[in-house]
């Protein structure tokens, strides 16, 4: 299938038709926890885009030049997660320098990018689908942008929702999941355009 659609096709499919959050449920933890304010959501979203693109490129290189030739396929999980963890550390240091308020706002969620399933998920999907290097980068970037769109849209809705009366028992996570479900249905409307297997 990787022959069929080009780099741009993968980019747009990763944002809309195969949105990593709304169709694959990856990255839910931080999605539910950090989607209360639009500003923090944007910050985390951009951090995710950066880490996702960079790690998918790095992991592709490591996988095809180190792991594959030496037949160490079973080690890929460990190698991928180490690369991701190191990268997150880097992003954390950069954000700490550049924007103090953002650093305080994101707080404990920055280290949690390491365990953000979406980042590892992108690396694993690109291996399973046999993407080329450029396809992997566009898939990483597209997934990151898709994640940002989803979390920012959710944060916008939740800001309005703070003033609404939600049925008892549905406050917090419950209503967020229902909104996510409706968003996922909306994104399913794009399915006809193109698809990723």
């Amino acid at each position: 299938m990787s022959e069929g659609i080009g780099v741009f096709g993968i980019f747009f499919a990763a944002i809309f038709t195969s949105n990593i959050l709304l169709t694959l449920y990856l990255g839910m933890c931080s999605f539910l926890a950090v989607s209360r304010k639009v500003k923090t959501a944007i910050g985390l979203g951009f951090a995710v885009i950066f880490v996702m693109t960079a790690t998918s490129a790095l992991n592709w290189l490591v996988y095809y030049y180190l792991i594959k030739p030496y037949n160490l396929d079973y080690l890929k999980y460990i190698v991928f997660i180490i690369i991701i963890a190191a990268f997150v550390q880097l992003v954390e240091m950069i954000i700490e320098r550049v924007s103090e308020p953002l650093y305080i706002a994101l707080g404990i969620f920055l280290p949690l990018i390491t365990v953000n399933c979406a980042i590892l998920g992108v690396s694993l999907f690109m291996i399973i689908r046999n993407y080329t290097f450029s396809q992997s980068i566009s898939y990483g970037l597209g997934s990151g942008v898709g994640w940002l769109i989803a979390i920012v849209a959710m944060a916008g809705i939740r800001e309005k929702l703070a003033h609404a009366r939600v049925p008892k028992g549905l406050e917090g996570a419950g209503i967020t999941l229902i909104i996510a479900g409706i968003m996922a249905m909306a994104f399913m409307g794009f399915t006809g355009m193109m698809g990723l297997s």
């Binding site: 694959l24 549905l170 996570a173 419950g174 999941l177 479900g181 409706i182 996922a184 249905m185 399913m188």
Partner: peptide
């Protein structure tokens, strides 16, 4: 819809709703 993505979100939300409401 149940086997597709939105179904998972709705089911979990309903489950949480029942557990926390009842």
């Amino acid at each position: 819809i149940m086997v597709m993505a939105p179904g998972g979100f709705f089911m979990l939300a309903i489950f949480i709703w029942i557990v926390k409401g009842v």
